[in-house]
């Protein structure tokens, strides 16, 4: 397993760079992970990250995009409740990219 050094701490990540332990996560780490991809997290990004973390806490799984879209729409208004908006924020795919910054495991999709 790979590790990542952050603020003098060695953090375990999986082969795709997702955190292995949810507890290792911090806001600073999220910023750092995003910066590795050349992304600067804006409040709009944080809305999604916070939602993902809340959802994960409740259901132990990352939501499917449909739910994410619906919930973001409910919370932030219908103009943001669409896939296009989320993909503009997270071009690598809202599920994959946002989950990484949120410290969630890599989403599984269908198995």
């Amino acid at each position: 397993m790979a590790t990542m050094d952050f603020q003098g701490k060695s953090i375990e990540v999986d082969d795709d760079g997702y955190l292995l332990n949810l507890d290792d996560w911090s806001k600073e780490l999220a910023d750092h992970l995003a910066s590795l991809d050349g992304v600067t997290l804006t409040p709009a990004h944080w809305e999604v990250i916070n939602f993902l973390r809340d959802y994960y806490k409740q259901y132990q799984i990352a939501p499917m995009i449909k739910i994410l879209v619906k919930e973001i729409g409910k919370a932030m208004g219908p103009e943001k409740g669409n896939t296009k908006y989320l993909y503009e924020l997270y071009p690598g795919g809202p599920a994959k990219q946002a989950c990484k910054y949120a410290g969630l495991p890599k989403p599984t999709g269908c198995v």
Binding site: Q58, Y59, Q60, I61, K66, I67, T108, C110, V111
Partner: peptide
């Protein structure tokens, strides 16, 4: 289940 959907997550998904 494979996805690891806990009981209430299944309910939530189906409600959607």
């Amino acid at each position: 289940n494979h996805l690891g959907l806990e009981p209430h997550a299944i309910m939530n998904s189906i409600e959607g």
